[in-house]
Computed example of a mutant assay.
Amino acid sequence: MKKFYSLALLFIASLVLTACNEATIPDKTNWPLEDFSHINQDGEDFSLSNDVKGEVTVVNMIFTNCSTVCSPMTANMARLQRMAAEQDINIQLLSFSVDPEIDDPATLKDFGNKFDADYSNWSFITGYSQKYIEEYAMKNFKAIVVKPKNDPEVIHGTRVYLVNEEGVVVKSYDGLDVPYEEILEHAQILLNK
């Protein structure tokens, strides 16, 4: 009987240690993305079902005529892309234009080129209406996007979002003061599941 209790305690201890060692993402969100189908910086089709699902993706929202936060945010995404490559973490990046009537594919590509974007795993997308991106951002990312009349500056959030392989937003982060290592650590957790 003593041997049975010893084995039972050993089994329980191993379960506790396994649970303690399992990496998790704290304060996870659970925001499934609605399907979309748009075009990227090369004018090619880009959709949730064909290009995002099956990948771990970091998403942000920018526009090319932005005079404030979009250049720093894009520089931060470029740095994240370089860090992921250096650490051999297989993520993709996705930037939605919040000014789609101005940001055609060529304009987005010129913008991405300024930041040495590697388009093999970073897409800039457009090809929808202003109303669409305003509604999509709020519903899917809980983010405000508004283009005021008679003002070239689009009001939008500055968060970046980590999306899992099922197309669900699992976490959002500051897009200006970016916690690079935390994002990459969380991406690695998703990749290891």
Rank of each mutant, 00 (worst) to 15 (best):
I102P: 00
L93C: 06
N21H: 09
N150L: 03
M77P: 05
I102Q: 11
D103G: 08
V145Q: 13
A19W: 12
D42Y: 14
Y132E: 14
T126H: 04
I62S: 07
L10Y: 08
T158P: 01
N40L: 04
I155R: 08
K149D: 13
D88E: 15
Y136I: 02
L162A: 05
C20N: 09
D104V: 14
I102N: 11
T158N: 11
Q87N: 14
D45N: 12
D27E: 14
L10S: 15
H38D: 10
D104N: 14
F124W: 11
F124H: 03
A75E: 11
E22T: 15
K3V: 13
V178N: 07
A23E: 15
Y5M: 12
P32Y: 03
F124I: 08
I62G: 09
N192H: 12
F63H: 01
Y132D: 12
K139Q: 14
P32V: 09
F36R: 03
D118S: 13
F141L: 09
V98W: 13
D45H: 05
I62Y: 06
E22K: 13
L94G: 12
Y136N: 08
L94T: 03
V59W: 06
S6P: 00
Q41Y: 03
E182L: 13
A75T: 08
L10W: 07
E34I: 00
D103H: 09
I91N: 08
K3Y: 11
Y128A: 09
E166F: 00
I102M: 11
V69N: 10
P100Q: 11
F124S: 04
G112N: 02
L94N: 03
F4G: 01
S172I: 06
D99P: 05
M138C: 03
K131L: 12
I125D: 02
D174H: 07
E153T: 12
K114I: 00
D51I: 00
N30Y: 14
L94Q: 05
N121R: 14
F46W: 04
L162V: 10
T64G: 09
N164E: 05
V59H: 05
Q130A: 11
F36Q: 04
